[in-house]
Every structure is written in structure tokens, then in C-alpha cells.
């Protein structure tokens, strides 16, 4: 079996002090994790075609795949993927775009391809696969098997309570990756 690539051994990883990154998550390449982020075990974040900067209060759940990937045909520039604040990537979601704003939700098994950019407050519904060359307007909701779109009046609420809860409960069952990569807390 191939040795498990764990976030622990990544020297380019920068985790904010009050962020919570589980050891079983895979974080490859130059990644900066902002304050109050929670990255669940078995999430995969790969800085393939440039670094990834994750803002504050993001919740990245199990089996999520986030890749900084150039569009097919684009020059291989080393542009960063910047993830804003208070985004939620639900279980099994996939994000391959180049930019995502604040307060977005990518629901379970949803996929955002390299061409689509999420602005703020967008919701990609469960199992929706979007990859059209566009910037989704603010508060766009895409959901259902017919990909019905709607502009919501409000952006989704930030998941502060859930993040606080996870920050309490996750350390009880998982090893965590801290900033100074060699140390792992087991509390």
C-alpha cells in the first residue's frame, strides 16, 4: 500500500492557530488555512496549479475534494485559488474552480468545475455538477435534478455554531495538524 500522504508531513502548509485540521485530511502543496476553519478527516485539498489560500470560518467536510487546477487550455500560470470566508463544502463535494467568494455552500456530492466562479452567498445543491464559463451572481441557488436557478434574497447564515461544536468534539477523536508541522496534539 502506498504510504498515506498526510497533511502532517507537508512543509508548505500554514495553519492558523485556531483552525482545526485533522491529521487524516490530505493537504498537498502550498496551502494556507485561515482562522476558525475546520477541515474534517478524509478531506483532500491539493494545490496543483498554484497555491490555495483558505479564508476564515470555512467548513470543509469529509470526502471533499478541492483542487487548484487551471482550465484546460489555459497557460500554466501559477495563479492562487483564493477561498473566501464562511464557505461550507459539504460531504463529498468537489471544487476545482479558481475563485470562490464568501458565504457559499457547495452541498453534498455537488461539483464545481474549473470554469465556474462562485461569487458570494451561492448555493450549489446536492449532486449538481456545474462547469459553465460564468461567474454566478450573488445569492444564486442551483438545486434539483433540473438545476433550477433562483436568486435568494439573503446569503446563507454562517455555520458558526456548527464550527464551534466541531472544534470542541473533533479533538476528542482525531489527531490534529498544527502549524509547526512536526507537532501533533492528541489532547
Amino acid at each position: 500500500m502506498i504510504a498515506q500522504r498526510r497533511s502532517i508531513s507537508n512543509p508548505l502548509l500554514d495553519v492558523a492557530t485556531d483552525a482545526l485540521v485533522c491529521n487524516e485530511a490530505t493537504l498537498e502543496g502550498s496551502i494556507k488555512v485561515g482562522a476558525r476553519c475546520v477541515i474534517h478527516p478524509k478531506a483532500t485539498i491539493i494545490a496543483k496549479d498554484g497555491p490555495i489560500v483558505i479564508g476564515e470560518g470555512n467548513l470543509i467536510e469529509e470526502q471533499t475534494l478541492i483542487i487548484n487546477k487551471n482550465r484546460p487550455g489555459d497557460p500554466a500560470e501559477n495563479t492562487p485559488l483564493i477561498i473566501g470566508n464562511h464557505n461550507v463544502f459539504e460531504v463529498g463535494s468537489e471544487f476545482q474552480g479558481k475563485s470562490i467568494g464568501n458565504h457559499n455552500i457547495v452541498e453534498s456530492k455537488a461539483k464545481v468545475g474549473t470554469c465556474t466562479t462562485l461569487s458570494n452567498g451561492c448555493v450549489i445543491g446536492a449532486a449538481c455538477d456545474v462547469n459553465i464559463d460564468e461567474v454566478l451572481p450573488e445569492n444564486t441557488v442551483i438545486c434539483g435534478d433540473k438545476y433550477l436557478r433562483r436568486i435568494n434574497a439573503d446569503k446563507p447564515q454562517p455555520q458558526t455554531q456548527q464550527i464551534d461544536f466541531l472544534k470542541k468534539i473533533l479533538p476528542n477523536y482525531h489527531h490534529l495538524t498544527t502549524n509547526k508541522n512536526k507537532k501533533t496534539s492528541t489532547s
Binding site: V123, G125, V141, L148, R150, N152, A153, D154, P156
Partner: peptide
């Protein structure tokens, strides 16, 4: 809970 429509959204 599915499409996040709410009565607040329509005022």
C-alpha cells in the same frame, strides 16, 4: 431545507 427558499426572502 432543500432549495433554501424562505418566507423572509419574499418579505
Amino acid at each position: 431545507t432543500f432549495c433554501r427558499w424562505s418566507t423572509r426572502g419574499i418579505g
